[in-house]
Design a protein around this nucleic acid. Sequence first.
DNA 1: TATGAATGAGAGTTCATTCAT
DNA 2: CATGAATGAACTCTCATTCAT
Lengths: 194, 194, 194, 194
Amino acid sequence: MTSKKKEKYDLILEAALKVFAEHGFHRSQVSKIAKAAGVADGTIYLYFKRKEDILISLFREKLGELVGKFHMHIEQTTGVKEALRKVCEIHYTELENNVDLAFVTQIELRQSSLELRKEIGKAVKPYIELIEKLLVQGVEENLFRADLDVKLTRLLLFGAMDEVVTSWLISGRKYSLSAQVDGTVQFFLQGIQA
Amino acid sequence: MTSKKKEKYDLILEAALKVFAEHGFHRSQVSKIAKAAGVADGTIYLYFKRKEDILISLFREKLGELVGKFHMHIEQTTGVKEALRKVCEIHYTELENNVDLAFVTQIELRQSSLELRKEIGKAVKPYIELIEKLLVQGVEENLFRADLDVKLTRLLLFGAMDEVVTSWLISGRKYSLSAQVDGTVQFFLQGIQA
Amino acid sequence: MTSKKKEKYDLILEAALKVFAEHGFHRSQVSKIAKAAGVADGTIYLYFKRKEDILISLFREKLGELVGKFHMHIEQTTGVKEALRKVCEIHYTELENNVDLAFVTQIELRQSSLELRKEIGKAVKPYIELIEKLLVQGVEENLFRADLDVKLTRLLLFGAMDEVVTSWLISGRKYSLSAQVDGTVQFFLQGIQA
Amino acid sequence: MTSKKKEKYDLILEAALKVFAEHGFHRSQVSKIAKAAGVADGTIYLYFKRKEDILISLFREKLGELVGKFHMHIEQTTGVKEALRKVCEIHYTELENNVDLAFVTQIELRQSSLELRKEIGKAVKPYIELIEKLLVQGVEENLFRADLDVKLTRLLLFGAMDEVVTSWLISGRKYSLSAQVDGTVQFFLQGIQA
DNA sequence: TATGAATGAGAGTTCATTCAT
DNA sequence: CATGAATGAACTCTCATTCAT
């Protein structure tokens, strides 16, 4: 029963991901999601309290998976710099290979109330903290500047990558996103100075 | 008459800024904006084709003003690095001193369709290009790396600053935004490397 | 403008009376009322806050008219007993001649929440108080028993008439309601007579 | 098995009485009743065809019990007048001592369609006929007026008592209901007395 | 230009009822 | 007999936009 319930829960989530990516959150009627999932409208409400809950749950699940991948790959790396490159690489390639998810995270999820954005902020936090952890480690190993403001820098790194992804999406994905990893990581490590 | 028209146009825009900042785009009814501007609902439609147009126009006007300020201040600077610091300084202080505008640009404006976001992209372009121009100049003056990918880097810089502002807003503005200028610029110039 | 507004207000109220009488409150969709009134659905909400407000307003207006008629006719009577007969006569004939109103007051209005019934109770109060006033006057004139519990008796009179009307309606109006005036009044007077 | 069936039937009815009394008919979801009865939603439909059937059955059962009590007590009385007082006494005390039932009969049961009200009318009939029987007997014994319209009077008596109960409920039960018996009966007897 | 009353399409959500297990 | 997950019809209310004045 639990597995069956879980199945339908995931079924709806998968359907929602597709519908949100194609039509955007506000233009995605619950009935459209239900139809895509092959269930009745009312069934949605057996698994989610409100329409917004689908969005939040979707984000939590998918971001959870992503953070899992980050941790998994980073464990296999040997140095902090290498790990940081891995983070950027996963960030770019995962979203490049999963355009639906990219649209939802970069475009649709932002189309929400301040209240919801705080909720999303909580879900993003583990990722931001992962970056911070690497920064702290780098400072301890004397690889990064001793006076580095890690709280500020984690935002700068995340924001920089985030903007690259969004810009790539809005441009219509006319170039390779993963090809930007080198330039991005070099910028992170060296800055722009000659 | 044209000046009078301009006056009412601005009147509506100012009212919209306040209303959007307080209630968010989707919760800001046209009638609420009209009331705040002291005009009739229908009058709005003499100056703006659709509700979304108010948002776009607001952004264009305000961003235009901002870009103007950037140009004005940069002309008074002597070097590229100094100019880049000035850009960051203006970016942070202007939004810190104009919280309404900050809310609209960082939160509400993102709550829009892909179509609208493209429109916004066009309005942001002059700013992004201003950054790019400084980067190109820096490379030419051998201040920045010769192999710098300026198209990518302009996004990284903008994205990094953008995230810092958004994060500051969502956190509830518990710390000084302008105090982040030093750390941000240092990161831009030096990167994180020791 | 005010008269025009008043006109549409009444238009909706008249339409609602017909629709409520025919289909009952819960089966009367707002769209049905709007159609009957020849206005758009949304227009209803320019004059009434919620669907329930239509019912309450309808009751207030109609009961207000009725109480007005009571007062008007009673002023023309000479004695208390005659006045009491007039009350019963108006009660029965008005509802007999306005079956739609009768249905709404006797059947549909009762189909409401305890909260709403209290609201209705307030609207009925002037009528109950009118009856009480007559009873007090009768006691003072030694026409009615000196030990008469006027608070209780006003309920007994109102309830008795109310039940006669409801029963007449539910029976399918197979007999004359106004023909019950004599029997009712005789019962009342003998009951309260000194 | 039949007794077991009867048990569950009563179980649901008792649960429904409580739920209806607390939340009202329209706000009492079938699932809420099922939960209160400790059965599954679907089980309700093994005993009742529709939600309304629960209400009707509830009324029939409870009113049947009441009418039984009336008959039982009246048999023990010696005169018609005494019997009539007993009727009023039972009417008031039974509902005063069973507030849940009072709420359902006076408030919730009225919240139903004309169709249902006819159904309820049938259930009330034995009680009304009981009153009529007493009236006829009284007339035969020359205790009551010879020209008494018993069909009308039975309604007047029932309606008067009904209104007293409803008014007592809506007022928030701030006074004793059974204390109204004397005043009520005195009014009745004087009204119909020979 | 300006008004603001009127429009009416649109969608989230509830819940009585069913039926496969 | 019993279950409870699934169904899907039903309906109120909002609000961007229009247009007669």
